[in-house]
Computed example of a mutant assay.
Amino acid sequence: MANDDVSRIDAALASPADRPGRVGLGAALINRLVIIVPYLWLLFFFLVPFAIVFKISLSQTAIAIPPYTPALDFSDGFSGFVDALKELSFDNYVWLTQDPLYFYAYVSSVSIAAISTVLTLLVGYPIAYGMARAPASLRPTLLMLVILPFWTSFLIRVYAWIGILKPEGLLNQFLLSVGIISEPLIILNTYTAIFIGIVYSYLPFMILPLYASLEKMDYSLIEAAKDLGCPPTAAFWKITFPLSLPGVIAGCLLVFIPAVGEFVIPDLLGGSQTLMIGKTLWNEFFANRDWPVSSAVAVILLLILIVPIVFFQQAQARAQEQGR
């Protein structure tokens, strides 16, 4: 057999990874596509909507459809766009600093979200820990029970809490029947009802990342600590909790970020006196029809949420580099 024939046979039997040319180019294209798709997702579903909202926040209120005068309009060409750029006004942002209502709404939203996040962590951590230490055969069932509330509409679940917490609701009827209280408790339309609603609604978002961290943990470290005379409580705080910090951080972010802008739960369970930025946004958009001011409120809310997360990620990256 000629050497050329042997070379052709070896090339045909070679694995796809060893073949030069078209296969290697296809693999590189797939790798780039995997990176490009998330960036395109962020571009179309985050950056573009944010740019539109920011553009509206620079406009002025008008009695029209839509109810504002367009800013940065390209209809007059590039020169008209440059002239409009020179005349941009940040009056809506200045207005937010002059009206204390928006400041109190931001502070109230952040404080309610922070307290709710801590309460959700206190409730969710023992549940996730119990799921991680449960027998392997029971874990899929426990996970399904955690995810089960998502099978029902979020709005229906919040309305169900109205039936539970109202003065003649199920909770008061139960407490009265067993003699714990002598008159109905006023829970609905209070901050307590808001905390209950947020903790209940966002509890799975806390449990799932916690369970993912605790389930991967090497529990032989706990046994070694016990063999060395470490009490169970000290072993938890020195071994279990530090190893589960990635899940704690992820769960807290998944709860805190949407809770800051929550609208349905404060509106239904907190009543008309509850001041949160989600209700303020709704009132500005639909009641006052002031789209520029409401867009400015939304932009500032987004910055309040994003800037600390960016700084936290940078600090975490520096800590990881120092630990190497």
Results as ranks from 00 to 15, higher is better:
V158C: 02
P184V: 09
N288V: 15
T69H: 03
Y191R: 12
S15E: 08
L305K: 09
D91K: 10
A2K: 11
W291S: 02
I222Q: 14
Y200T: 15
P135N: 12
Y202M: 14
L155C: 05
P209G: 02
L208R: 03
L208W: 01
I304E: 07
I35T: 08
Q320Y: 08
D10I: 15
P246M: 09
F263P: 03
R139G: 02
F78I: 09
N3A: 15
D267I: 09
L176A: 08
L122M: 13
A134K: 12
M131I: 10
L175A: 11
I56T: 09
F195D: 01
L301F: 10
T240R: 07
L253Q: 07
Q320C: 04
L155D: 07
A136W: 13
I198R: 13
D227Q: 05
I156A: 12
S153R: 04
K226S: 10
C230F: 07
V310C: 01
F44S: 00
L40S: 04
S182R: 13
I277Y: 02
G251K: 10
T233K: 13
L13E: 04
I35F: 12
R19D: 12
A27Q: 06
E284V: 14
I265V: 15
F46S: 08
F236R: 04
L210T: 01
F154G: 01
S116E: 03
E262A: 15
A298Q: 07
P100I: 15
T120M: 06
V123P: 03
L43E: 05
D267M: 14
P308Y: 08
T152I: 12
S177E: 07
A234K: 14
I187T: 04
L138D: 00
A28Q: 09
G261Q: 08
A27C: 11
N189A: 09
P38W: 05
L203W: 15
A296F: 05
K226A: 15
L275Y: 06
I180Y: 02
W237D: 07
A114Q: 01
L143D: 04
C230D: 03
A235S: 14
V299Y: 06
S75Q: 04
I249F: 10
R8Y: 10
D218F: 10
L170G: 02
A132Y: 04
E168D: 11
F174G: 02
G323W: 06
S79P: 03
P100M: 13
V37Y: 07
W291G: 01
F263V: 11
D227G: 15
A317H: 01
I65W: 04
Y68G: 02
M144C: 07
E215K: 10
L245R: 08
K279E: 04
P266I: 12
V48A: 11
V107Q: 11
P184N: 03
G323E: 14
I249H: 05
L275V: 01
A114L: 13
S7P: 00
K279C: 05
V178K: 05
W161L: 15
I198G: 07
I65K: 00
L43Y: 05
E183N: 04
V146A: 00
E87T: 11
R139P: 02
D10C: 13
W237K: 07
I63A: 10
W237G: 03
I36F: 09
L143M: 14
S182D: 14
A28C: 01
L96T: 09
L269G: 01
R318C: 01
I147H: 00
